[in-house]
Nucleic acid binder design. Structure first.
Length: 482
RNA sequence: GGCCCCAUGGUCAAGCGGUCAAGACAUCGCCCUUUCACGGCGGUAACGGGAGUUCGAUUCUCCCUGGGGUCACCA
């Protein structure tokens, strides 16, 4: 049997990391077994529909490299792939289910339902309308009464199924309610649309979050009542924001788009979330999508939830960044460079070469490069470096020597700068590290910079370098005079 | 509250009766070094508790505790 999995999001907002992971696993599973991955839009809740949400689903999947074989935009013969366009289908099957005894019409008003509440405020339908005769049902529908179709669940016995990650799940039938399958507006609920669509679309493996773990027996009861074959189930543990809270839409940073805009590479995001709830046998960590497809299997999907750790995703992102060429890095970082202090003024590639190993997410280039723009008073204590054996005094010596040396450099290339600096250091009795460390500081006023003294001077150019050195010289002189 | 599920370091996680309980991130230290990084080496750090089963439990069973999910005309 061909493996067919689906990702069935509802367009109610952005795609958060948990949703994406579900899509990813469904995709990986299908592709691992050379099957098909289907995209289905579950928009039966007209009230919660959010404008633009469908587009976001497409763009996120596309950026992530998760491509569907069938979907609203790619007909595979099982369409339509948008639930709101399948209304007639659901009605037909709901009626069929009623005929087969798996469901029944219900005319109960919200007011009557209200009276069914127990002390916990939980309403539990009492099968009141199950006893209605066929004739009465027909008469009341004819009369225009509002109605829903409810699932008819046995009051006794236990329903069981085997989940591929959680194993055997069993739920007493008496704990399940006769849920609504077809709403009074004619739209199906998730519970029903899902079963009908998964069957009609020949989904072999249903992959979704654990929130459906205990309601799955209800769906199985429907498959049974229809006389359909039940699919295999793969329920996925939740991704948590912290020990207590699930990742939610309220946790703003948890959605793909935000990470993308912060300068995370889609391949790094995908790689990281693949590892949240699953791990390959040999513990590989940095994996391409192709590699993930090759290695993915249900055996190593974990049962317990995992906390989303942005720090580790940053590390992974840094790994991907490091292997980019300078040009590739520049292309990716351009939007951030354009917003930074070097915008339009400097050769981005030059910075990329230095920043590649110093930055974990692209947006960090803005801060890393800020010293170019802002230069003023800074903490002179920075000149004190224990290991280097430098302080404000040696700093001043170094700065003075550097000014003299650099003034004489006509062709301001990095080789010449370096040579001049080393030479002047020797002349005034400073070691290589001491002179370079001090000069770098005098040029930038920052504890850490994208490169050493030579690179900084080269990037700043002769005039600006000398201007900054003289400024630092005066700062140091003033300090030492006190 | 009922029902379902889960439980290894701070985090992600190997483990599937016998291990000095992997690895990664983070953290700390050292080395390298033209700062900061990168890289290399090393350290700290875990089986929630209690009963069983067994020659032997992190691993199997039960209870407790803790946590999550679910009880909508939402998905």
């Amino acid at each position: 049997m061909k493996v067919r999995t689906r990702f069935a999001p509802s367009p109610t907002g952005f795609m958060h990391i948990g949703n994406l992971r579900t899509a990813l696993y469904a995709y990986l599973y299908a592709k691992h077994y050379d099957g098909d991955f289907i995209l289905r839009i579950e928009d039966t809740d007209t009230a919660r529909f959010v404008e633009g949400a469908v587009e976001l689903i497409y763009s996120t999947l596309q950026k992530s490299g998760i491509v569907h074989d069938e979907g609203p935009d790619k007909d595979g013969g099982y369409g339509p792939y948008v639930q709101s366009e399948r209304k007639d289908i659901y009605r037909k099957y709901a009626e069929l289910l009623v005929e087969r005894g798996g469901a029944y019409y219900c005319f109960c008003t919200p007011e009557r339902l209200e009276t069914l509440k127990d002390e916990n405020g939980v309403t539990r339908y009492d099968k009141h309308c199950l006893s209605l005769s066929k004739e009465e049902v027909a008469r009341r529908i004819e009369a225009g009464e509002s109605y829903v179709i409810r699932q008819n669940i046995p009051t006794e016995g236990v329903s069981e199924y085997e989940d591929m990650v959680f194993g055997k799940i069993s739920v007493p039938n008496s704990d399940m309610e006769d849920g609504i399958l077809l709403k009074s507006d004619g739209m199906p609920t998730y519970n029903f649309a899902n079963v009908v669509d998964d069957h009609l679309m020949e989904i072999s493996h249903v992959i979704r979050g654990t929130e459906y773990l205990s309601s799955t027996p209800k769906y199985n009861l429907m498959y049974d009542a229809f006389g359909w074959k039940r699919p295999e189930y793969i329920h996925l543990p939740p991704i948590m924001k912290d020990a207590h809270r699930k990742l939610s839409k309220r946790y703003g940073d948890a959605n793909f788009e935000d990470f993308y805009e912060k300068g995370y590479l889609p391949e790094a995001i995908v790689n990281y979330i693949a590892l949240l709830g699953w791990s390959p046998k040999d513990n590989e960590e940095k994996m391409t999508l192709a590699r993930l497809i090759e290695l993915f299997d249900v055996d190593n999907v974990s049962k317990s939830g995992s906390i989303f750790d942005e720090t580790k995703m940053r590390w992974l992102n840094g790994l991907y960044l490091k292997e980019k060429t300078d040009e590739e890095f520049t292309a990716l970082a351009r939007p951030f460079y354009d917003k930074s202090a070097i915008s339009g003024k400097y050769d981005y590639d030059k910075f990329s070469a230095l920043l590649k190993t110093r930055v974990e997410i692209l947006s960090e280039v803005i801060d890393a490069v800020a010293f170019i723009g802002e230069f003023g008073e800074y903490d002179l204590a920075l000149y004190q470096h224990k290991k280097m054996k430098t302080d404000e005094k040696t700093g001043l010596i170094a700065v003075k020597a550097a000014i003299d040396a650099l003034e004489k450099v006509d062709s301001f290339t990095s080789e010449n700068i370096h040579e001049a600096l080393i030479a002047c250091g020797e002349n005034c009795g400073l070691k290589k590290g001491q002179i370079l460390f001090s000069v770098r500081l005098a040029l930038t006023g920052k504890a850490s910079t994208p490169g050493g003294a030579t690179e900084m001077a080269d990037i700043l150019g002769k005039d600006e370098s000398l201007r900054r050195l003289r400024f630092s010289e005066s700062l140091l002189e003033k300090f030492l005079a006190e």
